[in-house]
Structures are given as structure tokens and as C-alpha cells.
Amino acid sequence: MITTSVAEAADCLKKGQVLAYPTEAVWGLGCDPFNEKAFREILKLKQRPIEKGVILLAANVAQVEHLLTSLSTEMKEKVIASWSSRTSEERATTWLLPADEQIPSWIKGNHPKVAVRVTTHSLCVALCHAFNGFIVSTSANPAGLPPARTLQEASHYFSSELNYLNGDLGSSQQPSKIIDAETGEVIRA
């Protein structure tokens, strides 16, 4: 299915299906992070090992507030500022945050932390709101191939195996940088 309806796309996620959708810089694959079967379908499509973990994408800080509680006040403010004060052309930031018991082990992979990004991409914000929570966001490509940057590229990789939310890609030229919120280490520059 290819749709431009955010409500239809959110329904796909709620039904345990995988969805391809445009993000800030590349197309992503998403699912309900609490649905292990859907998550394993993403891994199969991408030929990605579960050990690597994936990013969670949220519409606002409130959706991931519980993951910020163990950070220092200064770091919490820095993380929130990176999400909220970014222009659409600026590269997004994904933060590695201490995972609490609400985050399924398959989302983290072999890591004690979880990768989280609050997006300013209007379609992704609308999708997370319609889904009523954060979603999985991993690049739409099989392992070793470049991430899809168009609906055509995504559908070339995955054909009719997926549902697609058609829309505009964001203005960022690169996928998000990834930073460990506790150590400050830059994981992906």
C-alpha cells in the first residue's frame, strides 16, 4: 500500500505492519517498537543483526521524557535544546540515553542504552502523534546499500513487501549524528 494519509500509516503500525516513510534526510523503516514480530520483520528486510539496535523516533520530548530522568539537569537541557532549536536544514541529533525497563531488549540490541531522536520533520511528527507514541526509525535499505532517498528507491529495495507513507524528505543532507548523552562521545559524526 502507498498512502499519503498519516492516519492510514499509523493504522499500519498499530496492526503490527512495517512502514517505509520519509524522515529528515533519508527514508526510514518503522514499526511499533513493542511489537517484536514487526521489529524482526524489519531486521529480515534489512538483513541487519539484532545486536546493532535501532533508533526510536518521537514527535516531542513528552514521548521520551522517562528516558531523560537519569541525566544531569545540564545534559537534559542540552539534549532537549538539540531537538527543539534545530532548523529543518540542520542535521538532526540522535542521543544514546539510559534505557529504562519500558524499552524492549530487541530495540537496544547488545547495548545498555537506547538511541532516541525527537524529530522536527512535520510528517514524522504527525505520524508519531497519530500512532500515539514513538516508533522505530532505521534507514530504508538492505545492509550494505545506500539508504533510500525517494519512494522509488525504497520500493525498489522492498517492492510490495511494505506499506509506504509518501511525502517529502526533509532538507538535511545527512542522517542524524549520534551522541552518547552520558559520556559526550560522538558515535556517528
Rank of each mutant, 00 (worst) to 15 (best):
L57P: 03
L43F: 07
L165A: 09
N141H: 10
A130S: 14
V125P: 04
H156Q: 12
L71V: 13
N163Y: 14
L145F: 06
K76N: 12
P175L: 02
P146M: 11
A62T: 13
P22G: 07
T69Q: 13
C12P: 00
H121R: 03
G133E: 08
I135S: 03
P112V: 11
T73Y: 01
V118P: 10
S155T: 08
Q102N: 14
V61P: 04
P104K: 12
I135M: 05
A140L: 01
C128Y: 05
L151A: 01
P146Q: 13
G170N: 09
K15E: 13
T94C: 03
C31Q: 09
P98D: 02
P175K: 01
G133C: 09
P112N: 11
P112I: 10
P22N: 09
R117S: 02
K52C: 11
K177P: 00
L97D: 05
N166V: 02
V79P: 08
T94M: 02
S72N: 06
K37R: 15
D11C: 06
L169M: 10
P142W: 01
T119F: 07
L13Q: 08
C128M: 07
P104R: 13
G28K: 04
L45K: 05
V54I: 15
I55Q: 06
M1F: 08
Q174Y: 11
V64I: 15
H66T: 12
N110A: 14
L43T: 05
Y164N: 08
L68H: 11
E185P: 08
Y157K: 05
G184R: 12
S176P: 12
E101F: 03
S176N: 09
P112G: 07
Q47P: 03
S137W: 06
N110M: 04
F131C: 02
W27H: 08
P98F: 03
G30H: 06
A181R: 09
L71T: 14
R48Y: 09
R86Q: 11
D180N: 15
S85A: 05
S159N: 11
I107E: 00
P146A: 12
L29K: 07
Y21Q: 08
R149L: 03
F158V: 06
S139D: 03
L19S: 08
N166R: 06
S139Q: 03
A140T: 02
L43R: 05
K46P: 05
G144Q: 04
L169C: 05
V136S: 01
A10E: 05
E153F: 02
S172Y: 07
A126Y: 01
M75I: 13
F134W: 05
P147E: 00
K76T: 09
E41H: 14
A181S: 15
Q102K: 14
A154V: 00
K177H: 01
K46H: 05
P22E: 09
S137L: 07
A25M: 04
M75A: 10
T94S: 09
E51G: 08
T94Q: 02
H129F: 03
V26S: 04
I178C: 02
W83D: 02
G144V: 01
N110S: 14
W27Y: 15
N35A: 14
Q173K: 14
E161V: 02
A62G: 10
H121N: 07
S5D: 11
P33Y: 11
G30V: 04
F131K: 01
V6N: 03
E65H: 14
L68A: 10
A10M: 06
A59Q: 04
A7R: 14
A143T: 15
P33W: 12
K44P: 01
